[in-house]
Design a protein around this nucleic acid. Sequence first.
DNA 1: CATGTCACG
DNA 2: ACGTACGTGACATGA
Length: 554
Amino acid sequence: MDDPPAPALAEFADLERVLARAANIAVGAIRPEDPLLALGAEGKGTCLLDGGQSRAHRKALAALLGGRAVKCGHDIKETLSSLERLDLDLAEPMFDARLAAYCLNLPREKPVVGEDAAAALVRKTVRALSERAALESRMKDAGVLDLYRDMELPLVRVLRGMEKAGVAVDETYLRRLSREFSSAIADLQAELDAMAGFPINVNSPKQLAALLFDKLQLPEVHKTSKGGRSTDEETLKVLAARHPIAEKILNYRELAKLQSTYVEGLLQRLDPKTGRVHTTFDQTGAETGRLSSLNPNLQNIPIRSESGQKIRRAFVAPKGWLLVSADYSQIDLRVLAHVSGDEVLRDSFSRGEDVHLRTACEVFHVLPEKVDADMRRKAKAVNFGIVYGQTAFGLAGQLGIPQAEAADIIKRYFERYSGVSRWFEKNQEEAKKAGAVRTFLGRLRRIPELSAKNAAVRQFGERAARNTPIQGGSADIIKLAMLAVSRELERMDGKARMILQIHDELLFEAPEAGAPAFAGKMRKIMEGAAKLDVPLVVDVKAGPNWRDMETLKA
DNA sequence: CATGTCACG
DNA sequence: ACGTACGTGACATGA
């Protein structure tokens, strides 16, 4: 498609009458703190307004943006965010070119070199208007128009509401934690310096490799992707058997990570006026249809380690409220059961069994009462690996078992779960033919790597082709749930809020008194968000912070 | 700006 | 023979 003509800057008044009569108008805004607006109509040039001008024209803008014209833009969520500052909103109908391109899984637009923010805003906004018809037609042809119109576009406002609401953080607690971590890090640094015999910067993989492999002559465990000598966690765990410094480095790394990324990162992003942090959800970043979260990323808050849990404790409910968490149980494997139709997997979920235990029974040929913790652990790794296209090599590495044993386990898995095996075959064949895969709700991912000459590249494509219908199918389900939940929250008129999505979990805050009933309501909505051939099961918990949550029974 | 590392689902 | 588990984002280092 041709680039639009260079936008002419015009006075707002010159355009206002044209815009008021237009069926489609171009609307874009950036810089929430100091809004910059672009407005235009087909063939009528563009008007650029800064924050001050926007305020002066607020009344006229409200009429235009609240009118019946199709508001066409590029990244509507960003536009909504900037307009909030002027107390303005966009009324339906809308068109979001960026979201349309995402649903079509088109390659991402490269940034124009040397272009300033205002010029980029005008260019993208005007293009959104001129490309609307073509993009809608392409979406129809590609079978993703319903996905765009009924799922992604309505989700924009829901996500903006979550971003705006933010999450409360206990600043006093976090500052105390910062001092605690700093002191522990300083102690570890002193011990490391003493053990190394010189001041060692553990944050430098280069210095660390020199210490471990040159000075201390410890064995190299594996290479980095670029051929260097790796000092990662896996390596250090191996080296821990040969030298006490490895363990110290691991301890240092853990705390340094938590301190820099989470404690300091969150304090930096905390709004001192409200005591809340506000993430941005990227609705168009992930190839599989998942969301991502940035500035700060609130989808990777620690949970696994003890020190990590101290970070979770910093996320709190306001006084008189509770956090409510609702997470889908085994959603990926349920989606696999649904798309593959595998009888054993379906049976397992229909009966409400422990799926990892069932897999252990199937692959080890034993009765449930004979399954020990190690067998279940292995079975769990197999269930994870299956979804990712894991090889015997990978499973062996994961479990620390010989490759032959891993190959045997995988072989038995596919014998017992033959429906899964057949679905993988069929999916692979169709993916190769189409150069793309879809989720069961029609979301599309093109995978050009499937026809690569290079075997490694092609195999990567094959794993992506296996994983995407599953991970993407799960993403579709939780998005539907979020839409259904948000409709209920509107009915509740602000008596509770949805504040985060973490791929298979939704986090809410709700008044303490009504929290159990609220949690039950959310559970029901989420379990009913999509109709699969197996039940969807949601576990709900509530508590004063994101660490101390108690399970609520149905 | 690339690299290595590591936090999460 | 190929390389070896999918999807993200943030941080520190050092060229």
